[in-house]
Design a protein around this nucleic acid. Structure first.
Length: 210
DNA sequence: ATGACGATTTACT
DNA sequence: GTAAATCGTCATA
């Protein structure tokens, strides 16, 4: 179809989180605001969360609560959580129904609606110097703030939903390659701390760190 | 009802 | 590099 601009379908999300985390790099994350305004960014950094066995995952041990419920839904579901009393982070649920695995979207390079993304990021914080363009979405909570994503979007669907979806992004720069490393901010996860489940686009300045 | 703790970011020394 | 911000979530009781 021509009208869906290469929008990802259900089966595109049905893979395991390790595969999806790598596949999402270079894809376009699209946020459609209630006003119809379109914001987008090329995903440059992701992390895989492997579910009940993964001590870093919110679904570790099969934990199933109102918060984590979207992780048990069908692939292509959005899971947004609130943390540190002030930040939101966004995940793409994958795998099969009742298998609570997901990919955390950690950073993106803004493509469309950059002015809006910037104003979302600078809202309520009068600053002396404008935010650097590479700081707009260079972290999971920065990305959510810039794209206007919060818990209200948790449980929504990337295939049928209006607010968020993923598109193939033909304009993605020639891939310089993926760097695979340890996940960030999960020091409590014991033997899972060292597992290389983070991927980011090599030589890209919009990643949260190198 | 209560206490401990974040899949982070930012400002400051 | 260090530390504060800030409150929903979850386990314990």
């Amino acid at each position: 179809m021509s009208s869906d601009r290469g929008r990802w379908s259900r089966e595109d999300f049905a893979s395991d989180p390790v595969t999806l985390a790598q596949r999402l790099i270079g894809a376009l994350l699209v946020r459609t605001l209630d006003t119809g305004e379109r914001l987008s960014g090329m995903i440059v950094e992701t992390e895989a969360y492997l579910g009940v066995e993964d001590k870093a995952a919110h679904s570790f041990g099969g934990r199933r609560t109102a918060r984590t419920e979207p992780m048990y839904a069908q692939p292509g579901t959005v899971y947004v959580y609130f943390t540190y009393g002030m930040h939101h982070c966004m995940n793409v649920v994958c795998g099969a129904v009742d298998e609570p695995v997901a990919v955390l979207i950690r950073a993106a390079e803004p493509v469309e609606g950059i002015d809006r993304i910037r104003s979302n990021r600078e809202a309520g914080k009068p600053r002396k110097t404008p935010l650097k363009s590479t700081d707009l979405c260079s972290g999971p909570a920065k990305l959510c703030q810039g794209f206007g994503v919060d818990r209200r979007l948790s449980g929504t669907d990337l295939i049928d939903g209006d607010a968020l979806h993923i598109e193939h992004y033909p304009n993605a720069k020639p891939a310089l390659g993926l760097v695979n490393s340890e996940r960030i901010g999960i020091g409590y996860a014991e033997e899972w701390v060292m597992r290389p489940l983070r991927w980011h686009l090599s030589q890209n300045r919009h990643v949260s760190r190198n």
